[in-house]
Amino acid sequence: MRGTTVLPGTPCAAPRAGDPPVHRLEVRLPDEVPFAAGTFDAVGPLSRAAFPHRHTFYEVVHVTAGTGTHVVDLARWELRPPHLAVIVPGQVHHWEDVRDLDGTVVLFTEDFLLDHPGDRELLRRLGERPWLTLDAPTHARTARLMAELAEEYGHGAAGFATVLRSLLRVLLVRTARLPGAVEPPAGRAGAVAEEFARLVARAGADRWAAARSVRECAGRIGVTPGHLTEAVRAATGRTPGALLREARTREAQRLLVGTELSIRQVADRVGFDDPAYFCRFFRRETGRSPGDFRKHHDRRVPSLEGDGVPA
């Protein structure tokens, strides 16, 4: 996918002024496969970045040692290894006060999943539960598989991309089997609900211009608003309107905590033309004003508009 990979040494980017830094996947050569695997040290310093940032790629992390906290959006996960973490494009994450962090990191873009298109939806659902604690047998099995991925990637022998895709497929399927990892969709209703979820996940890229309401989402999917509501409620137990509000609120929270954008700029980023209406919406959804929420979660770092952050 264009813009998701860069050559080594390319700095992080911010698509819009003030946004969290965006880390693109480094590939060794322009025609290399969009995949990387190895230890935290082998993958590079950004694999344990202490500043909030997003990815253009997927990241699966098998944490085998270390102390500290892994922060994904607003959820804080204390390190008590072994863990398996799944971070999807668009989520904001960083590592906080970590010491002796060890494990294996697997990075890949959506392009790498073209042979298995259903994996994109599986990854989205895994990203909703991004922190899993492993029992001893699962930890050992996961360690062997992650080591195989890193070894195959490191050797780069003939046909290695095919082997990597196959091993990655096994990793995703096994991860989905873990207790609490994903909730299975429910038939045709599940398919419509999945398409709705994909649409909402992509909405942030265009400032919610095409997904501000249930009617707009239904039109994009090609169903009536009533059918969309029934399908989403059957698959999730919730209404699409509630899920839309939750997603816009989550994105606003990410920007308030991870950037120095003004309240007006945050409102614009999540599709509100009127900052005052955004403030009322945010208070209704969270119980706090945007300003109070930012003060309560004041863990911001300088944006790329100032001195920047290391890349």
Rank of each mutant, 00 (worst) to 15 (best):
R2V: 13
G9Q: 01
P11Y: 05
G18R: 04
L25D: 02
A36M: 07
A37L: 01
S47L: 02
S47V: 03
A49P: 06
A50T: 12
E59W: 03
H62C: 13
H62D: 10
A65T: 05
G66A: 04
D73S: 11
E78G: 08
V88E: 07
G90W: 03
H93E: 05
W95L: 07
W95Q: 08
R99S: 14
L101M: 04
G103R: 00
V106W: 02
D111F: 01
F112V: 00
L114T: 10
D115C: 13
D119K: 12
G127S: 11
D135T: 09
A136F: 00
H139Y: 10
A147Y: 08
G154M: 13
G156V: 09
A158S: 05
A158Q: 13
A161Q: 05
T162R: 15
L164D: 04
L172Y: 02
V173A: 15
L178T: 09
V182K: 03
G190Q: 04
E194F: 09
R198Y: 10
R198E: 13
A203G: 08
A209H: 11
A209Y: 02
S213K: 03
I221M: 05
I221P: 03
H227N: 10
H227I: 04
L228S: 02
A231V: 10
A231E: 05
A234P: 09
T236Y: 14
G237Q: 04
R238G: 15
L243A: 06
R250M: 09
R250P: 07
A252Q: 01
A252L: 07
R264L: 10
D273E: 14
P275R: 03
Y277D: 14
R280M: 07
F281R: 04
E285P: 09
F293E: 01
K295W: 02
R299Y: 11
P302S: 12
S303K: 01
L304F: 06
A311H: 02
A311G: 14
A311W: 01
